[in-house]
Write a protein that binds this DNA or RNA. Structure first.
Length: 615
DNA sequence: ATGTACAGTT
């Protein structure tokens, strides 16, 4: 019998032979083997359905091996009803006595690992409990993983309680997954991974997985400083980090924009012989780009032997972030030439590269390519990139036409990018009406008020501007305070506007005064129109001098030898005045100043900025 | 069992 030759087309032949096989013969073992192999190569739902009926016809649905394999395969097709009918063929409520925890575990694991099947993993866990099948220590990691993927905190907590009841809370595997579950479930909460930290702290034995889960949890929750601190604590305890720990630490480092830390991490990876997996290299590319050393990111990228779509996308986004949009699209083309198909994220990357570098024609080309060549249906983000691209290029009317023609409902992000363009291009009447509409629809979003207030400032309508300000006060809203971070001697310093918490604050303010005098002599004129307060011009200049990035730059000028490049990281977009002042500072003090904005870099050198004032 | 890229902006 040549039934081991397997493919979809072999099914019919196989069916023909197998249905006629008498039970309990040696041939029956062949049947079992055949089914198992067929399940391995099963790649379409149709094939899977055929195998399903085959199993039932052959009475193999009591065979634990076949059952287990079938259950696992069913998750690929989200075929929960098939799995149920094989598990409980006669009676949907009572499983045969042969169904033990192992079988349910297989099923739960299979569904927990497939993105869209996680609810079914929980369903089978409930079924298991309903039938009083006792879970064992292998059950919990799978169930917790499903809870983590669906961010079901309450459910996760209940599973935790039942885990304690069954006495598995001491198992290191289970505990690690528990930490991970609590980390994943708290991501939308403001309190951070508190429950996870509690389990973490109470774990008597912590291995690299325990630490990775916790560090990754802080990094994903946006608490990057805490993630890095935890990594330092890990080193003290002597547990050696693995490449997965390092990916999380690098991601936190990228978020902080701490280049010195990042360089140290790379040498640490080298020193400890930590495996440079593709994911680790991807994290390095992202980190170097977001910390301002995009050339080093390119170096890592070029030295990689195997690249994934994430590697290419990180490189494209990295280059775009530094205003090197042309290089970014070249990398995108190179990727396609090498036969790597871009995904939707890669297209977001290349479209935003076009948008930030004014490459309107290329943007249109890639947008069309996405649908025509790769059959990727554009999402709201892709439309957003296109609207932003047209708006930035000063083609506000075309942007509006694009919005009208697109098949999805525009969201607030898209309207805000139009208002920003109106502000920059002097289309103030249009900007005002769109901003008002935004406030009407989304009254709790601070940035809508700020946008409207900026437009009134440009129109010199101070009374209206004050009114907007009052609306914000009534609702108890505040502008997010701007802050600037700078790395100096292995410390990270953070400045906010008018900050006086620094030890050397007097010297810093004197330096700011001096900087102001020097750059004015070189031709700098303060841009006072952006100051939100309705005060006289001289006070406005004063308010500008207190901006956090000027404080950080003054601190850097005081603390580093002449000629050293200065790197700072802002939490918001750089303001017009600081952008202009920094250009003059780079010339007058002969310093290269690298500023990381909320979403991109400005390299100031000799009075010019890499963004070409296009940002 | 733990990990990487993602439109606008204050």
């Amino acid at each position: 019998m040549q039934l081991t030759k397997l493919s979809s087309s072999a099914i019919t032949t196989t069916t023909f032979f197998q249905v006629h096989l008498p039970p309990h013969t040696t041939k029956r073992r062949v049947a079992e083997q055949t089914i198992l192999s067929l399940l391995t190569t099963c790649d379409t739902l149709t094939t899977f359905t055929q195998i399903h009926s085959l199993i039932l016809k052959l009475g193999l649905h009591h065979n634990p091996l076949v059952l287990t394999k079938f259950a696992a395969t069913s998750s690929h097709f989200n075929a929960v009803h098939y799995a149920s009918s094989v598990l409980f063929p006669n009676d949907q409520t009572t499983p045969p006595p042969s169904h033990d925890a192992f079988l349910f575990n297989t099923l739960i694991r299979a569904f927990a690992q497939t993105t869209h099947s996680k609810p079914h993993a929980l369903r089978f866990y409930n079924t298991m409990r309903r039938h009083a099948v006792s879970p064992n220590k292998f059950t919990f990691p799978f169930v917790l993983k499903a809870c983590a993927g669906m961010m079901r905190l309450e459910l996760g907590g209940a599973v935790h309680a039942s885990m304690v009841k069954f006495g598995f809370e001491e198992d290191p595997h289970v505990r690690n997954t528990l930490v991970h579950m609590y980390c994943c479930c708290c991501q939308d909460g403001s309190s951070g991974p508190v429950s996870a930290k509690k389990v973490f702290d109470e774990s008597p034995v912590k291995d690299s997985v325990t630490w990775s889960a916790m560090i990754g949890g802080y990094a994903r929750a946006g608490n990057s400083a805490r993630a890095v601190t935890l990594f330092r604590e890990m080193q003290v305890t002597g547990v050696c980090p693995d490449e997965i720990t390092m990916v999380s630490v690098l991601s936190a480092c990228a978020d902080l924009g701490a280049l010195e830390l990042g360089k140290w991490l790379e040498s640490y990876i080298e020193r400890k012989n930590i495996m440079r997996s593709v994911e680790l290299c991807n994290a390095l590319i992202d980190m170097f780009a977001k910390c301002g050393d995009v050339d080093r990111a390119v170096k890592v990228f070029r030295e990689m032997k195997v690249r994934t779509i994430v590697s290419w996308t990180s490189m494209i986004v990295g280059l775009a972030m530094h205003g090197r949009g042309l290089e970014a699209v070249l990398v995108f083309d190179e990727m396609m030439e090498q036969g790597v198909d871009p995904d939707d994220v890669a297209f977001i990357g290349v479209l935003s590269a076009c948008s930030h570098s004014g490459l309107v024609d290329k943007g249109h080309y890639y947008f069309n390519t996405m649908e025509n060549m790769f059959s990727i249906v554009p999402k709201i983000e892709h439309y957003g990139c296109m609207v932003d691209m047209l708006s930035r290029a000063g083609r506000v009317n075309e942007a509006l036409e694009f919005v009208r023609a697109m098949p999805v409902e525009p969201n607030q992000v898209i309207w805000r990018s139009i208002v920003t363009a109106c502000h920059a291009r002097g289309e103030l009447k249009l900007g005002e009406s769109v901003a008002k509409e935004l406030i009407r629809r989304e009254p709790s979003h601070e940035s809508n008020y700020v946008l409207l207030s900026n437009i009134y400032a440009k129109l010199l309508r101070w009374e209206k501007k004050t009114k907007v300000r009052e609306m914000m006060d009534v609702k108890g809203m505040r502008k997010i305070p701007g802050s600037t971070m700078i790395e100096m001697n292995n410390e990270i310093y953070e400045f906010v506007a008018g900050d006086k918490s620094h030890d050397q604050y007097k010297e810093i303010y004197e330096m700011v005064e001096e900087m102001g005098r020097e750059i004015k002599r070189a031709g700098y004129v303060p841009t006072t129109s952006q100051v939100l307060l309705d005060i006289d011009e001289e006070d406005k200049e004063d308010a500008l001098y207190r901006h956090s990035e000027k404080l950080a730059i003054a601190f850097a000028l005081l603390s580093t030898p002449p000629g050293t490049p200065i790197r700072i990281v802002k939490n918001l977009r750089v303001c017009e005045d600081c952008h202009s002042a920094t250009k003059f500072i780079s010339k007058v003090y002969n310093r290269e100043i690298v500023v990381r904005d909320r979403n991109r870099f400005h390299h100031f050198k000799n009075g010019l900025c890499s963004c070409g004032d296009f940002w």
